[in-house]
Design a protein around this nucleic acid. Structure first.
Length: 314
DNA sequence: GAGTAAATAT
DNA sequence: AATATTTACT
């Protein structure tokens, strides 16, 4: 019958659909002029601002990067599972699902930590985009579908530790932790499992503090155990001294703006590859480069699935 | 349902 | 072997 819209036209090599040309053209008219766009070379925020908020600057992208990116995106959209994570460090391409904020991939040396004493008060920095193992494209309908394996990156773990430290070992229970971490896609089970391991680590650590860090958990070693966690037994975490931990605390009023960080990235695809690429992108091309600095509160992650029913939030 | 420990799974 | 998920139990 009639052709229906898929929402996205991948490209028009052979345009036998003459009727679509008009529409494409019409669509193009809606695009911003080149002059209206922020040049790639121009940073979105000033260096002062960046340093003030401990924002690690994005690596500068060249036009080449962009082309590569769009190429990969197109490939992904048409179901070519050819691409996967085997690339270099920076190609995190979000679909409409998590396009609002992009985190930077990091590839740093183990010793990147400041040698300064005192506690490092880090602002809400970017966390990571952990990569799961399967399903390059997840359809929103299948919420019950098994989630790919979560990988706890150092950043994610750090967030975890911060939250646990803030709560105190007493109140640090999976559900609360999950909520405070405010990580999109993170489930209570994920947290529970990790918490279990972490407790084991803590316990084992109190007995033999100075054990060789080689064989033991690299992950846990990456983030120092806050002192507030070392206390045994009960004990409300009495005052943090002056240590202000920049962790989203359930306080009603303004606090450190921390935004939810998505956990899932892209990945390879299973054998039964269905080339189901939906894109669902909106008309406003400007928003893609707009970071969500808005007052996102901690209550819920901004899951932008088709239906606002996130995995968490109860 | 939630928290935890133990058993599986990858 | 390590680490994440699932199951079992409270």
């Amino acid at each position: 019958m009639t052709e229906y819209e898929t929402g996205v036209h991948l490209d028009e090599d052979e345009n036998d659909d003459a009727g679509n040309d008009d529409r494409v053209h019409e669509w193009e008219l809606g695009l911003p002029a080149a002059d209206d766009l922020t040049p790639l070379s121009q940073a979105l925020i000033s260096p002062e601002l960046a340093s003030a908020f401990s924002i690690t600057p994005e690596p500068s992208r060249t036009l080449l990067d962009v082309n590569r990116a769009s190429k990969s995106t197109l490939a992904a959209l048409r179901g070519n599972s050819a691409l996967s994570q085997g690339f270099s460090t920076n190609n995190n391409f979000k679909s409409a699902e998590s396009i609002r904020d992009s985190m930077d991939a990091e590839q740093e040396e183990p010793n990147r930590y400041d040698s300064r004493k005192s506690q490092r008060i880090e602002s809400p920095e970017e966390a990571d985009s952990a990569v799961r193992a399967d399903n390059s494209v997840d359809d929103p309908s299948a919420r019950t579908a098994k989630r790919p394996r979560l990988v706890w990156t150092p950043q994610l773990h750090k967030r975890f530790v911060e939250v646990v430290a803030h709560l105190g070992i007493k109140n640090a229970v999976p559900k609360t932790i999950m909520q405070l971490m405010n990580v999109e896609g993170l489930t209570r089970e994920n947290v529970a499992s990790h918490l279990q391991k972490y407790r084991l680590y803590l316990k084992r650590m109190q007995g033999l503090p100075g054990e060789d860090l080689s064989s033991s958990d690299q992950l846990f070693a990456s983030t120092p155990v806050p002192q507030s966690l070392r206390e045994n037994g009960a004990g409300t975490h009495s005052g943090h001294g002056n240590g202000h931990i920049p962790v989203p605390v359930p306080m009603p009023y303004g606090a450190t703006p921390i935004m939810p960080m998505p956990v899932y990235g892209m990945s390879h695809q299973g054998p039964g590859g269905d080339g189901l690429g939906y894109h669902g992108f909106e008309s406003n091309p400007y928003m893609v480069q707009q970071r969500d600095w808005s007052g996102n509160r901690y209550g819920q992650s901004v899951v932008s699935r088709t239906h606002p029913a996130g995995p968490n939030e109860k």
